Amino acid sequence: MKKLYLFFLCISVLASAFFAYSCRNPSGKYSNPKGYDFTKPDKFNMPSSLQEISGIAFYKANSDTVYSVQDEDGKLYRQGWDVKKQSNMKFAPKGDFEDVAFLHEMVFVLKSNGDIYSFPVTEVVKKESNLVKLHKQVVPHGEYEGLFADQETNKIYVLCKKCGIDKKTKALSGYVFDYKSGTDSLVAAGAFKMDLNQIKALNSELKASLSPSALTRNPKTNEWYVLSSTNKLLLVADSNWKIKETHRLNSSMFNQPEGIAFDKDLNLYISNEGDEVIDGNILKFKYLVTEKK
């Protein structure tokens, strides 16, 4: 009888341990890119004004100040890391604003219809700016949420979330622009596509579909990081947009991932929109040096 009791006790302990691990990472299906541990974030909860936080960015990759936009107000928000009090600058009427990026001394904000707003960095300390330029209809009709600015080439990248051109294909389109500072203009400089069949080839449990919510590039590896809130997925692609890795995200931690950015120390940040129960937040994942010196 005693042996039977010990047997069931052991089974109970093992089952409890397995259950606890499964809740954190059921079936081991969650993963993260090399150099990061997605189970150990530094969490920064947002104030109510940023409950619907979307895109995030850092000026010159300095993480002492976080810049962000949210889904409804045409405002650029700024706040110190882990400081809830925010200041903001109005750049547009209410709308659906999805991503933000800095290109040298300019700020760019992407609206969901593909329109892009630009204004000088010096304007961010004001309540409202009269130096905002609206770049309308620079991309085909569709829904857009991913924006990236390349400091070396002066190019702006815009990624489709849902575009008519991709409707009958297993592909995702994006567009590239040269920014001309003299005229504050965006000049078409090409396009690119991501083959979504590569997702299923890397993980047979996933569908060959994607609705991107944010875009950035790893400054160390030059790999593209494409985030999807709808799919709860992070993709890593090479410089030619070939998908190399798929990382499923745990919804208990990533409530609604809408923004992504790196700082100058290679730390990775992912912003999450909140809901009736959970505050909007930004999760910081410290870069773990894995290479031998």
Rank of each mutant, 00 (worst) to 15 (best):
L6G: 05
L6C: 12
L6R: 12
F8C: 09
F8T: 07
C10K: 00
A15W: 10
A17G: 07
A20F: 14
S22D: 15
C23G: 04
N25C: 14
S27V: 07
Y30C: 14
S31D: 05
S31R: 04
N32C: 14
K34P: 07
K34F: 05
Y36K: 07
F38P: 00
T39G: 10
S48V: 06
L50A: 03
I53L: 01
S54L: 08
S54F: 03
G55V: 01
A57C: 11
A57D: 10
Y59D: 14
V69C: 04
D71L: 05
E72H: 11
D73L: 08
R78C: 04
D82N: 15
V83H: 06
K85F: 13
S87F: 08
N88G: 10
K90E: 07
K90I: 00
K90V: 02
E98G: 03
L103E: 03
E105D: 15
G114Q: 09
I116T: 02
F119V: 13
V121M: 03
E123Q: 14
K126E: 07
K127R: 11
E128V: 11
N130K: 12
V132I: 15
Q137T: 07
P140Y: 06
G142M: 00
E143T: 11
Y144D: 02
E145R: 10
F148H: 12
E152P: 01
L159A: 00
L159G: 04
K162M: 04
C163G: 07
G164D: 09
K170M: 05
L172H: 05
G174F: 03
V176A: 08
Y179E: 13
G182W: 04
T183R: 11
L186T: 03
A188W: 01
A188T: 06
A191T: 14
F192P: 01
K193R: 10
M194N: 00
M194K: 02
D195Q: 02
L196Q: 03
N197S: 11
I199L: 06
A201I: 15
L202V: 10
S211H: 15
A214R: 13
A214P: 13
K220V: 08
T221I: 00
W224S: 00
V236S: 02
V236F: 10
K242D: 05
R248E: 12
N250E: 12
S252N: 14
S252H: 09
S252C: 01
S252P: 01
Q256F: 09
Q256Y: 04
E258N: 13
E258W: 13
K264R: 15
Y269C: 05
S271E: 04
S271C: 08
N272I: 10
G274V: 07
D275A: 09
E276R: 13
N281L: 02
I282P: 03
L283A: 10
K284V: 03
F285P: 00
E291M: 08
